[in-house]
Nucleic acid binder design. Structure first.
Lengths: 203, 203
DNA sequence: CAAAACAGCGTACACCTGTTCGCTGAATGT
DNA sequence: ACATTCAGCGAACAGGTGTACGCTGTTTTG
């Protein structure tokens, strides 16, 4: 039974996280974020920031965790839609692109910090992307009967394509996003066809 | 016949460009670069920076031009190696990965600024990557007899894979880079096989 | 109820940033 | 030879940064 103080503390912490997310943009990657600006937007004094996070790095790692939760939600959503019917590739790619459009800051953080900041940061980001790939790989093995090796290769390839395509979707209009989605679907199909041909060749 | 002054000016300008390249790293994307630090490393007073560039943005655009030159050199090198013989995909991917290893700063700038900074910055970066893709597309049309449409789709897919794989190569040892190279070769082969199957299906 | 804990505050510090302005000696142009 | 240009300089400005420290009123704990 949390008291008034614990509730307020969580509320302020949440405000800091949201403020940081808000301030991420194309021009301002995480490394450009100022502790003072984040605190100001959250409505507290800069020195109070340290009541919640040791430093900006710790806030950043928390943001990456948020990214991971969002990605997991994306996977669940895609799975539900696939069970409803329709082309697996189309549904998956469309779901992914919608996720990007609705979570631009999260996605941008993943991409920008994949090769940035400290080692712990990169590891955290890579961990989330690896989880995404692992789920896709499981799917390919269990539902499409690919060998483990070929499924792994395929999921890595597809992840590269969709994450890169997601990056192309920043700050474009609806029409352009549709075009990118269609192109991405065609590209994932290229990979699927190549994997199918490889599977047959190996039998 | 440039005079002493013109020569010295070019030398200082070169020093600024090199200093900026030196200071690009995983932790310090371009937006983190400090005009004063760049000037210091180049051996001049900060205010002298304005004798060469209007601001840091202009320096950044110059860096992107340097990236473009390097990418063009990469394409020439890959073409020469292909003519010497060997698997086209292997030679191309190996050449690309070697380029990344030798030009980490340049490559990192391309990736980080693809979705960063100002509009003019992004356009400059995208222009260079588009040129890379266009050359690959020409190759697929002229040497492999793909339709223009399929060649374009393929080159975009391959570019996504190799640029993403390049990003995986930052700060890894030789052995790990070899492993990534082999995986990338296998992935590009997936795409090629898929494209081949698509070509046959369309005939 | 009294003592302890603490979320948030304000002051202050040391340092950094980009940029303007005027100066100077060497190079260049006439 | 003289006048002009300019690469580079230093002083200064205004503004920003992250962080240490001590205080205070409210909440929590025993």
């Amino acid at each position: 039974m949390a008291g008034v103080r614990a509730k307020q503390k969580e509320k302020t912490r949440r405000a800091l996280i949201n403020a940081a997310m808000n301030q991420l943009s194309a021009e301002a990657g995480f490394s450009s974020l100022s502790l003072r600006e984040v605190a100001r937007e959250a409505g507290i004094a800069p020195t109070s920031f340290y009541r919640h996070f040791r430093d900006m790095d710790e806030l950043g790692l928390t943001l990456v965790d948020e990214c991971g939760l969002a990605l997991r939600q994306l996977l669940r959503q895609a799975r539900q839609r696939i069970e409803t019917g329709g082309s697996i590739i189309r549904v998956s790619v469309e779901t992914f692109m919608q996720f990007v459009a609705e979570n631009t800051a999260i996605f941008r953080l993943l991409l920008q910090e994949r090769s940035g900041r400290s080692r712990s940061f990169r590891l955290a980001v890579v961990r989330e992307i690896e989880h995404f790939k692992a789920e896709l790989e499981e799917y390919l093995v269990n539902e499409q009967s690919f060998s483990r090796e070929l499924a792994e290769l395929q999921s890595d390839t597809i992840a590269k394509i969709v994450f890169s395509a997601g990056a192309d979707c920043f700050d474009v209009n609806e029409e352009e996003r549709e075009r990118i989605t269609e192109t991405t679907i065609a590209q994932v199909r290229l990979v699927a066809r190549g994997a199918e041909a490889t599977k047959r060749f190996m039998k």
